[in-house]
Computed example of a mutant assay.
Amino acid sequence: MTSLPGDPKSFYRAHIFVCTNERPENHPRGSCARKGSEKLRNYMKTRAKELGLVLEDGVRVNNAGCLERCELGPTIVIYPDAVWYRAETFADIDEILDVHVKQGGRVQRLMLKPEDGPDHSAKKK
């Protein structure tokens, strides 16, 4: 996504969305909530505050409804970078906060690529 002349500046330097969608147990696509995403989101919010990223650095951590990638979850997307991650542990969250949010890098081992997950080509037509 490209900014256009006249677009307002992003309200947050990093706006992090953690999928907390919950589907019924045994749903074929699974759900991020059933994979522990709520605990991960709560931990990420707490750690971001402890690290001074929230107030001092313009970072916001929110929950999100379905991000359409629950098979790969728990899923996280960080805007305005539009980088998607799969995080399963608190250590994964720490690494994302340190490498991506603080340092501006990427955690390659946790990144999701557009070709990962369900095929949405039919929706694009």
Rank of each mutant, 00 (worst) to 15 (best):
E22Q: 15
T20D: 10
L112S: 01
L112F: 06
I96H: 02
P24H: 08
L51R: 15
W84T: 06
F11P: 00
E56N: 15
L110F: 12
R69M: 04
N63F: 01
G73A: 09
V83N: 09
R106Q: 11
K124D: 02
G73L: 05
V59P: 02
P24I: 13
L97T: 04
P5G: 03
C32I: 03
V61K: 04
S10Q: 03
C32Q: 05
R41S: 09
K123W: 10
V83I: 15
E50Y: 08
I93Q: 01
P80E: 10
C70W: 05
D7Q: 04
A91Q: 10
K113E: 12
P80T: 14
D98W: 02
L110E: 04
E50Q: 11
K124G: 00
E56V: 00
A64G: 06
L97Y: 07
K39L: 12
G117T: 01
D119E: 03
P80A: 09
N62S: 14
N62I: 00
S121Q: 04
R34W: 00
N26A: 14
D81T: 15
N26V: 02
E68G: 10
R86G: 03
D119M: 03
G105E: 06
L55A: 14
E95D: 13
E95G: 02
G58T: 09
G117H: 05
L112C: 02
K39H: 11
V107P: 01
E56Y: 08
L51W: 15
E71N: 05
H120K: 12
D92I: 08
E50D: 15
K45Q: 15
G58R: 08
D81G: 14
E22N: 07
R34M: 08
R86S: 15
E68K: 10
V99D: 04
T20C: 12
Y85V: 07
E88I: 05
K45N: 07
E56D: 15
Q108R: 08
A33V: 01
Q108E: 15
R86Y: 06
M1W: 05
L4Q: 11
V101E: 03
V18I: 12
I16V: 15
